[in-house]
Amino acid sequence: MVACNGSTLHRIPLLNAEEIEKVAHLARLGLNREEREAYALDLSRILDLVSQMNAVATDGVEPMTHPDEAGLRLRPDGVSGEIDRDRLLAIAPKTRDGLYLVPKVIE
């Protein structure tokens, strides 16, 4: 259904359902079948767009990770600011005895 709206002529999605599921799991996103199919198409389109980067030769180019390359500023070691535990825990979905609670983690 989404495919009909596609503006680009898309041959085969670059990503199959299995790959989509793997990525969704890494990102901890639960997708139903419909969403998986929609994302497979969307992501394939986006990757198609992204693949235009390959038109540019970048051999020997230094990667640019930050706009500011002055280097990291260091903070003096000292305790600063206050910690209001009650206020922090008050916004949590589930707490008990000063702890955040989650479903039991099986080690």
């Binding site: 903070r75 070691d77 000292g78 305790v79 600063s80 600011g81 206050e82 910690i83 535990r85 922090l88 825990l89 005895d97 000063g98 702890l99 955040y100």
Partner: peptide, 27 residues
């Protein structure tokens, strides 16, 4: 053995009551 955390100004004391040494950055 720093006084404060590596990326925040919260203290690093051991054995404190739970979540009393974690500030907004740590959380």
């Amino acid at each position: 053995k720093t006084k404060s955390k590596i990326f925040s100004g919260a203290p690093t004391a051991y054995g404190a009551a739970p979540n009393t040494q974690a500030n907004v950055v740590d959380a």
